[in-house]
Nucleic acid binder design. Structure first.
Lengths: 133, 133
DNA sequence: TTAGGTGCAAAACCTTTGCCATCCC
DNA sequence: GGGATGGCAAAGGTTTTGCACCTAA
């Protein structure tokens, strides 16, 4: 049964109170000011928990390892949530999107990276959407 | 002066010979079969080198740390190449893109993540596009 | 009462780095 | 020859985990 603890509440509150997309370490520092004995392990455990139950999300599209692509041209990728494999997605990179968002935001945009997530053809057939190969 | 070495050639060849978006470790294993004394450090050094001179690219949009977002709704981000800060980008997530790519590829797509890169407003003014705060 | 959660510290993990030997130009 | 690279191993930094204690329900 899921229990609400002071630590978990504090972590979610810290996350909700900022738009700085903080790291685990930043949250740890924030909370330690008012709860000096909290541990970094608890922060990591709860961040993972909050992501799993849909109350937060990780931003970096990080797998366990860095992956490299011998094709240096910008192109889009698809990553299978089940087996972790990464595939190229054909089609044209939308350069106008960069220009539009640059106008809207004032950021100087050099490019964008786009990653689709879901199940690859093989894992759809295998039909174990929960596991991870 | 840049020198061509057997190791560097082998790493680029391995990268070009696959579309599996390999990890450094995978490349290391491949090359060790024909060049048993190559070291993992060399693989990392050369992968970084190849990315820097535009012959390969890293796929994961990984910063040094994982960043978390208290907003669990899918939305787009902008990451400043200079200061590393991450900003939300407003606007609507293009759900039709998922459907279109799903039709084209046969993948089952649940969502996509999109990250713009460039210089934020503050770093444009500061005018040091090379450094990193 | 008791299963879930915490704190602490060690482990695990990937990646980088220092140093000296080696190799390419 | 001499500087760029490689091999090796140790260091570095982040994240995870084992375990004993604690605590919310």
């Amino acid at each position: 049964m899921i229990r609400r603890t002071r630590q978990r509440e504090a972590i979610l509150a810290a996350l909700r109170a900022t738009d700085s997309h903080p790291t685990a370490d930043w949250i740890y520092d924030q909370i330690r000011r008012v709860m000096p004995t909290i541990s970094l392990g608890t922060v990591y455990r709860n961040l993972r928990f909050l992501c799993e139950c849909g109350k937060a999300q990780e931003i970096d599209m990080t797998g366990a390892h860095t992956r490299f692509d011998g094709n240096p041209e910008n192109h889009y990728h698809f990553r299978c949530d089940n087996c972790g494999r990464v595939f190229d997605v054909g089609g044209v990179v939308d350069k106008e999107l960069d220009e539009r968002v640059a106008r809207e935001t004032g950021f100087q945009i050099s490019h964008h990276r786009l990653e689709f997530r879901g199940l690859c053809r093989g894992c759809q057939r295998a039909g174990n959407p929960e596991g991870r190969a």
